[in-house]
Structure formats: structure tokens, C-alpha cells
Amino acid sequence: MKLDVVHDLQSVYRKVVNATSRPGMISNLSDEALSVENIPVQCAASIWVLALTLLDQEVTFKVYSAQAEKASRAINQLTYAKPVEINEADFIFVLSDAEEGSLEEAIELGKHGTLMNPHNSATIIVEAENVNDGVELLLSGPGIQTSTSVNVCLTGDWIASRNQKNREYPLGIDLMIIDKEHQLLSLPRTTQIIENRVVV
């Protein structure tokens, strides 16, 4: 089945809205992702679905991947969005085959907006192994009644980088984590993360 750019992308958008307004609630994009034919690079189809939902000629992006050039060209051809340097990008994709430390670099160098225009900030879309099975994270903030926990399998010290980047609210970056099963976890800048380390 072919992806319907009107109705499928609308349903992706609504799932992204739900995930972003209720951080910790995991949305499943597999229905839409499975209708994508011919993925140009090795990555989860849901990454393409998100790119099609959010990107067009009005925005810029940057890709971190072992095949970054190929992926950039493909996204550009698919959406007409313009590939740029990291510090200018509206959307940053960090694919699972990216070098170690890429996510931290993306968080550190991505634009975090200005106090006058905090919305001019990067949205980072990360491909993770799993958002259901991994390190337990305790989330709190707007969209969460008291606190909620998620288990994210994503390597590196990204939580510390994110805390450092988002320290001066309303400046900050917004994260979307998508896994191989097309499950989406959205962590807008308002969400506070506490890593729940088990002490043995």
C-alpha cells in the first residue's frame, strides 16, 4: 500500500501532537510507516514519515549518519527542504548508524532559539534501538500529571547534554525519539528527565 500524503500524514501529525503534549506517552507510527515504499537509506521508515509530515521548502535540516550525504540528498529530493550546517538546522536527524557522540553534538550545536524568538530552535529526531526497554527515565513537566517513567535504549550521555542545553528555559531544543518498531517518544524542552539508576 502506498503512503497517502493527505490522510496518513494527518494521522502521523496527530500522533506527534499527542506524544508532544503528553511526554512519556508513546505513539505508534507503524500503520503509516509500513505504507512507505522504497526507503532510500537504511533507517526506520517512520523517520521518513516524520520528514514528510514536517519538512518542506521553508525549513532546513541536517543529517547525522554513516550515509549522511545520501540521506541528505534523499530528504532534499523528497521534501525540498534545504540541507545546512548544524547550527542553522530547523530539523536534525540522528540515525542509528551515526558515529558515537553524534546525538550529544547535535544537542550541543543545534540552535536553541533566542529569548525573543524561542520557537526558532531545532527539533532533533533520533533513531533509537528501543523506547520501551532500556534505562528507566523519570519524566515530569507540562503534559504529565505528576510523573511518568519510560525506558529508553539510547547510548551516550545525551541526557546531560540536553539538561545543559535546555538550562535556560524558554531556550532549548525539542527531541523526538523513534525506535525500530516505529514507536515515538517526544521530549519537548519543558520535560524534566531524571535518570533512574539502579544501584547494585
Binding site: S21, T53, H119, D174
Partner: peptide
């Protein structure tokens, strides 16, 4: 679809920054 995408992007930033008016 382009118009919708533009509104959608603004809406997502609005949700990320509660109370801030996104143009």
C-alpha cells in the same frame, strides 16, 4: 498540504513552549 505543514510546525513549537505566541 504546504499550508497545513506550516501551521503544524508552529503548533508543535507552541506545545513545546506553553503560553508563548508562535507566529
Amino acid at each position: 498540504e504546504g499550508s497545513k505543514r506550516e501551521i503544524r510546525r508552529a503548533t508543535l513549537k507552541a506545545i513545546a513552549i506553553p503560553g508563548y505566541q508562535v507566529p
